[in-house]
Simulated assay, not measured.
Amino acid sequence: MSAIPSWLRSPRALLVVLLVVMLSTVVFAASTSTAAFGAYNAAWDGSSQLQEQAAAVDTQSQIALNTSVYETTTPDGTVAVILTPDRAYTPQEVARVRAFVNDGGTLVVAEDFGQYSNPLLDALGVNTSVDGRLLRDERYYYQSPNITVATDVEQSQLTTGVDQLTLNHGTALVANTSEESETEILVNSSSFAYFDENRNAAFDENETIGPRPVATAEPVGAGRVIVIADPSMMINAMLERPGNQQFVRNVFADHDRVVLDYSHNEALPPLSQAIILIRDSGPLQAILGLVGVAAVAVASRQRGLVRAVRGTSGQEDADADPAEIEDLVAYLRHEHPEWDEDRLERVARSRRQNGRSEE
């Protein structure tokens, strides 16, 4: 006899199982992402673990889809993170970010080859920019000279417990370190690093080796801006490299809140967008609440109508002798072992009500 329960062999049960599988697949697809640096991308190139890093240091985190978040959050005690934006910030958006930093917020901008971070940094009055050329190091690297290990770490609160940072096809920063500038270099590459000008994966005569800054911090207004020469340093796979995770946690630990600004990155999954929009919109929450109440009321009314229509048959079922039904079910089970339990009970009740020996 089959090990599959009889109830599961019925067409109705199979339909339910199929619907559950299909619904689970749709929900999973609508709530995950494959976008590089994506907040809901749990693969190696996603940044889904950033919220976990915030939680590890008891810091609240949220994902933002619009720069209006800079106007609604308290700058003091908040750090916002921007990973290689894929489009320019408008003047209005720049004004929001600038006001956030000037009023005491901390901003982290991580960039390598994108074209939109430098204009934002310049508009904020930051003395650091992103070079944009590929940095290689044939002495200190992980797996490949393109995965550079920056070994020159300056002592500061942000680098406590950090001996190195690992960049994955990153670049370096152009930092103003003049006496008038308050820019602080947090981490430099090793003295063997160089820019691969023509990207031929080799050190050429016209290229020079030497330490280059890969992470800086400087005060801007009442706040601070931290610039990192590689957004990949914060992806899931690279957080496992020595120093990277600790550096991120140090940045988050000084704050009460972390805002992950994805307003200028590839769109989030539909379900995740919907959840964030509902969370951030009081009126939308109220509307959905009213819709839910209305749906419950309609469902209750429909159940009442069904009970009214089925009143007679329902009374017949109630008046049925359970022992008599069980005897009929047992008899039919012996006569028709191939029938499932639903069919056995349905036929038994039919015979009891109609008083005849046919289905």
Rank of each mutant, 00 (worst) to 15 (best):
M1G: 11
S6I: 08
R9W: 00
A13R: 02
V16L: 14
L18A: 15
V26F: 09
V27N: 08
A29T: 13
S31K: 01
T32A: 02
F37R: 11
A42C: 00
A43G: 14
S47L: 07
S47M: 14
S48Q: 08
L50R: 06
E52L: 13
A54R: 03
A54D: 09
D58R: 14
S61T: 07
Q62N: 06
Q62F: 11
I63A: 04
I63R: 07
A64M: 08
L65W: 03
N66R: 14
T72N: 13
T74E: 15
P75R: 12
T78I: 05
I82Q: 06
I82M: 12
T84H: 12
P91L: 10
V94Y: 00
A95I: 06
R96H: 12
R96S: 15
V97E: 02
A99T: 15
V101N: 06
V101T: 05
G104M: 11
G105A: 10
V109Y: 01
D112S: 15
D122L: 00
A123G: 05
A123S: 13
L124H: 04
L124E: 09
S129C: 02
D137V: 04
E138Q: 12
R139D: 08
R139H: 03
Y140M: 08
Y140P: 09
Y142T: 13
S144K: 03
I147A: 12
V149W: 03
A150T: 09
D152N: 15
V153C: 01
E154N: 14
S156I: 01
Q157M: 04
Q157V: 06
D163N: 10
T171D: 03
A172S: 15
E182L: 05
T183G: 03
I185F: 08
L186A: 02
S189F: 02
S190H: 11
S190I: 00
S191G: 08
N198L: 10
N198G: 00
N200D: 13
A201S: 10
A202C: 03
F203L: 15
E205F: 00
N206Q: 14
N206L: 05
E207V: 04
T208E: 13
P213R: 07
P213A: 11
T216A: 01
E218K: 01
A222E: 15
I228C: 06
M233A: 13
M233D: 01
I235Y: 06
N236I: 01
P242T: 06
P242Y: 01
N244D: 15
V248S: 14
R257P: 00
L260V: 11
L260I: 15
Y262K: 08
Y262L: 09
H264N: 10
N265H: 07
L268Y: 00
L271F: 15
I278W: 06
I278C: 01
R279C: 00
D280M: 04
D280Y: 00
G282M: 12
P283V: 13
L288W: 11
G289Q: 10
G289A: 08
A294T: 09
A294C: 12
A295N: 07
V298E: 03
S300G: 13
G304H: 04
L305K: 10
L305T: 05
V309S: 00
D317W: 09
A318S: 04
D319V: 04
A323E: 12
E324R: 10
E324W: 00
E324M: 11
I325G: 07
I325F: 04
V329Q: 03
H334M: 14
E335C: 02
H336S: 10
E338G: 02
R346M: 10
R351W: 01
G355Y: 01
S357Q: 09
E358W: 12
